[in-house]
């Protein structure tokens, strides 16, 4: 049996370019992704990492860029540093009548990872939508969750 996957679709009143920027611009991710940044040159084969915005040595997720086709599609491997459990995430961005449809698919998940990310993606992506549509993110997603717990 194949490993579980998690799919989340959200419609955002913004251009695909703005959504792509929101995924990689630290000044935007820190607002909706628990005060983290995603660091890479976003070229196929490059490393990428999900870091504490205030402390680059604090890396919670890292991996490799598998596909990078701005502003349409980004595919990353996704694993916690020092753990062998590696999953894969695709971001697909499509035009949709003046808005855009963002589909995040997280593949090859262990049951523990499935549980963890099923709570995370809806909050992060809901807040990204709010940031792009209103100029301000959802307050709860501006804090570093790890520090909060």
């Amino acid at each position: 049996m194949s490993k579980p996957e998690f799919v989340y679709v959200i419609y955002i009143h913004a251009t695909p370019e703005k959504i792509w920027q929101a995924l990689i611009d630290p000044e935007m991710t820190k607002e909706f992704w628990g005060r983290h940044r995603n660091r890479s040159d976003w070229k196929v084969g490059s490393e990428w990492s999900h870091q504490n915005y205030d402390d680059a040595s604090d890396v919670s997720v890292a991996g490799t860029v598998i596909e990078s086709d701005p502003p349409r599609r980004l595919v990353l491997t996704w694993g916690h540093p020092n753990q062998t459990d590696v999953s894969r995430v695709t971001f697909d961005i499509e035009d949709f009548m003046g808005s855009a449809r963002l589909t995040v698919t997280h593949f090859d998940l262990s049951p523990e990872m499935l549980k963890a990310i099923s709570g995370g993606w809806p909050a992060v992506l809901s807040s990204m939508k709010t940031l792009l549509e209103t100029g301000a993110s959802l307050p709860m997603t501006r804090r570093n969750w790890k520090k909060a717990s």
Binding site: Y11, H13, M97, G98, S99
Partner: peptide, 11 residues
Amino acid sequence: SLLETGHAPTI
């Protein structure tokens, strides 16, 4: 969108 911005985009 409707609750946050007062406007729901046409989907």
